[in-house]
Design a binder for these strands. Structure first.
Length: 336
DNA sequence: TACGCGTGGGC
DNA sequence: TGCCCAAGCGT
């Protein structure tokens, strides 16, 4: 991964850039490496240092984060960058305790940055480490209750000689060999001491608490365009679902939502957009209309030349994709 | 402690 | 196809 340093660089005493390590770790929270790579490249190209990021407009950062999910991470990313400039002279603190005091940095990220960027003997415990420890010691306590026990195991094994390499190695073992399904025990360097392997329980580790069922919610989303092609959008409130992101005005999302058009117009339904969030399933009825030039009751117009569907969170991009063909038809009909 | 918070890929 | 999951954090 591009934010890592190789053996030759480390042998020469070169440590990874703490800014790049921090950025990667925040992006990797509950997110796959494959999804993160391009976002990390884009962010470091646009904002090469933490000071550059701290100076960026909120809307620019949110737009670049669009599609990566868990948008509170992007809001906290900016808060953290600005705190580092304001309170730490633009340099990342190099201790776990100072790092964990910053927005968006919790136990995992504080340990990961301290270990990987500053080679401090901190114990990282992410989902990979939990899985490796639960198998190595055949822990049958269900997660998340097992977390302290697994953390204690991981801490006892943490290398004080090469903490950064150790942290990445345990996570890489979990990501590539000690995988959730069909672990490659045959090539695992820990196959002999692994208690789950000895007991034949590796497929049942880690034990997890049962999940809650996802309710199904519905709503209306309104995609309106003005005569000049401008799109009616709104910036969502800072807190809550898709907080701070651009979206289309809509109704509440509930069992039986009431229509709530953002402006008087001849709204008509053109289809549905389906999306699954972490804790509920959503079906949005997509409404479209040509809008008069008068001010809407909610939202604001973005000129067609400045509107990029890629800056929308995925649920809203799906709404756009359902609506766009119908709007284009209307534009063409009007023009023709 | 438990919940709210996204998304895309794998099977 | 519907579930499971991924380098968690804030409240």
């Amino acid at each position: 991964m591009p934010w890592r340093t190789g053996p030759a660089e480390r042998a020469a005493g070169i440590r990874p850039d703490p800014y790049r390590v921090w950025l990667s770790e925040v992006m990797l929270q509950q997110t796959t490496v494959a999804a993160v790579r391009k976002y990390h490249e884009r962010f470091t190209a646009l904002w090469p240092t933490v000071a550059d990021l701290a100076a960026a407009p909120d809307a620019d950062v949110m737009a670049e984060w669009a599609g990566l999910g868990y948008y509170a991470r992007a809001r906290n990313l900016l808060k953290c960058a600005r705190a580092i400039v304001a309170d730490h002279g633009g340099r990342f603190p190099d201790t776990h305790d100072a790092l964990i005091a910053l927005p968006g940095i919790g136990p995992y990220t504080a340990a990961a940055v301290a270990a990987i960027a500053f080679d401090r003997p901190e114990t990282v415990v992410d989902g990979n480490v939990e899985r490796v420890m639960s198998r190595l010691f055949d822990v049958d306590t269900p997660l998340p209750a097992a977390k302290p026990e697994l953390t204690a195991h991981a801490a006892r094994l943490t290398s004080h000689a090469r903490p950064g390499d150790h942290a990445q190695a345990v996570m890489d073992l979990g990501a590539t060999i000690c995988t959730p399904k069909s672990p490659a025990c045959g090539i695992c360097p820990l196959r002999d001491p692994c208690l789950a392997r000895q007991n034949g329980t590796e497929a049942q580790r880690p034990v997890k608490a049962p999940k809650k069922a996802k309710p199904h919610r519905r709503g209306y989303a309104y995609v309106g365009r003005r005569d000049d092609g401008a799109w009616l959008v709104e910036t969502r409130p800072e807190k809550g679902l898709l907080g701070g992101m651009l979206g289309f005005p809509g109704s509440e999302w509930s069992d039986a939502p009431a229509p709530l058009p953002p402006a008087p117009a001849d709204w008509r339904a053109v289809g549905e957009a389906e999306h699954v969030f972490t804790h509920f399933r959503l079906t949005l009825t997509v409404m479209v209309a040509d809008l008069p030039p008068s001010n809407p009751e909610r939202g604001h117009f973005v000129p067609a030349s400045e509107f990029r569907p890629g800056t929308l969170p995925t649920a809203m991009r799906k709404v756009h994709d359902v609506a766009a063909p119908h709007l284009l038809v209307e534009r063409a009909r009007a023009a023709g």
